[in-house]
Amino acid sequence: MIPALLIGREGSVGFPGKNVYPVLGKPLMAYPLMAAKKAKSVDTVYVSTDSQKIKSIGKEYGAEIIDRPPELCSKEALGEDAYVHGYRYIKEKTGKDIELVVLLFCNAATILPETIDEGIAVLRKNPGYDSAVTVSKYNMWSPLRARKEGADGLLHPFVPFETFGDPKSLNCDRDSQGDVWFADMSVSIVRPHCLEHLEEGLLPQKWMGQNIYPLKQWGGCDVDYEWQIPQVRFWLEKHGFKE
């Protein structure tokens, strides 16, 4: 059995109501729901939430609902814990052997069913891989360019330049350090042991395990601020979605 598990909660500080914000005539969370429902390899779709509105939309798109407990709904709560809770619920409820779990966020709309099926095929072919996750290339956000404010109120390298080799060989070209891939949170397809032994996974998304296969795309992101909506709308339109 391969379930898809979509999580989203009621409260959001940076962008209230982001999960149900309308994009091209549909709530943001409808896009990962549609991708999971249309993926050929996914058997059942679950939505874990404390929000009545999210529950209603989930049911509209044929998902089964998991009541997300209050302790996993605060702004301090981690998504990884909500995923573990949802996985345990599905395993206990169905009593079936779970081959893989497709993990999605309500606020991450940049995902297609074909990408989900591709990731599942990769993991079936490569038993040594822990997960397959979408990544997008953002060379303009190379860690070489990252800065932090020092005690003197000035900007300093966030990561020492020596980490990247001889500083004399570095330059301001955004591509000079090679491609920089970020997990864009559109989907993580994981083996059950990743959720059963979360402590063994790599930071910051420990649910991905150790051996992570990149499903390369462009422009993917999970929406945390309203200014990201035009990027998501652009991505969806480029992939054939219309108002």
Rank of each mutant, 00 (worst) to 15 (best):
Lys53Asp: 12
Ala63Pro: 02
Asp81Leu: 13
Gly14Met: 11
Val20Ser: 15
Ile98Met: 07
Glu226His: 08
Cys194Gln: 02
Leu28Lys: 10
Ala132Val: 01
Arg9Pro: 01
Lys26Trp: 04
Leu170Val: 07
Pro204Phe: 06
Gly17Gln: 05
Ile66Cys: 06
Ser12Lys: 12
Lys168Met: 13
Ala109His: 05
Gly25Lys: 15
Glu196Arg: 08
Pro69Gly: 14
Val223Gly: 03
Phe105Met: 10
Lys206Asn: 13
Ser142Asn: 03
Met1Leu: 10
Pro22Lys: 13
Val47Ile: 12
His156Arg: 14
Lys59Cys: 07
Val187Glu: 03
Pro70Gln: 15
Tyr87Lys: 10
Asp152Lys: 08
Lys242His: 12
Ala30Leu: 08
Ala30Tyr: 06
Val232Leu: 04
Phe105Pro: 00
Asn139Ile: 00
Glu200Ile: 05
Val47Asp: 01
Leu195Val: 04
Cys106Phe: 01
Arg191Asn: 08
Phe158Met: 14
Lys38His: 11
Ala109Arg: 03
Lys26Gln: 14
Met29Pro: 00
Val180Asn: 02
Gln177Val: 07
Tyr61His: 12
Tyr138Ile: 00
Leu72Trp: 01
Pro16Met: 07
Ala39His: 04
His193Glu: 13
Val102Glu: 00
Ala109Trp: 02
Val159Ser: 04
Thr94Val: 10
Asp130Pro: 03
Ala121Lys: 15
Arg191Tyr: 02
Ile212Gly: 02
Asn139Cys: 02
Gln205Phe: 13
Pro32Lys: 10
Asn19His: 09
Gln217Pro: 00
Ser186Trp: 00
Pro3His: 06
Glu196Phe: 05
Phe182Lys: 04
Gln217Ser: 11
Cys172Phe: 14
Asp184Met: 09
Glu237Ser: 04
Pro157Lys: 12
Lys168Pro: 06
Ser169Val: 11
Asp97Met: 15
Asp50His: 09
Leu78Cys: 13
Ala35Phe: 01
Lys238Ile: 06
Leu112Met: 08
Ile111Gly: 02
Phe161Ser: 15
Lys242Thr: 12
His193Val: 07
Glu226Gln: 13
Ile111Gln: 03
Gln177Glu: 10
Lys206Cys: 10
Arg174Ala: 08
Ser131Phe: 01
Pro3Asn: 03
Glu114Thr: 09
Trp181Arg: 07
Ala109Pro: 03
Thr110Tyr: 00
His239Ile: 03
Leu5Asp: 05
Arg191Cys: 09
Phe164Ile: 11
Pro22Ser: 14
Leu78Ile: 11
Gly128Asp: 13
Gln205His: 11
